[in-house]
Amino acid sequence: MAGTTSSSRPRPTAPHLQVYRPTLTMTMSIAHRLTGIAVYIGTIVFVWWLIAIAAGRDAYESFLDALGSIPGLIVLFGLTWAVLHHALGGIRHLIWDTGRAHTYPWREYLARANLIGSLALTAILWAVCYPR
């Protein structure tokens, strides 16, 4: 049995990301995980928003001041893109779950649609919402 050998040689490991030439589908796969992690942390901003409103006028004003600052706006813009990219990436995964679009050229179309779609939706949402 493998676990009972007395050899001190390290166990063989599978090659990881660094040995592969980057491709769009691979990048979008990594982006799906990273945006998922970003949105996980970003839920703090969402709940902070709700708590600030629940806490009253002053707390809400402080929240708006913080998010309206330059770093705040950058975080909010990045979070908008991350949410949309992860949502569209999720739809892509759901399409794959039905057994479709795993092969060329559809997998490439989906990867592009994911990136272009998330950037376009972010731009549209900010263009509609930002300058009131």
């Binding site: 839920t43 703090i44 969402f46 709940v47 709700l50 708590i51 409103i53 629940a54």
Partner: peptide
């Protein structure tokens, strides 16, 4: 905490 804190805030509002 995210789920419950958010829900508590929504219900209070």
């Amino acid at each position: 905490v995210i789920g419950v804190a958010g829900a508590a805030a929504v219900l209070k509002i």
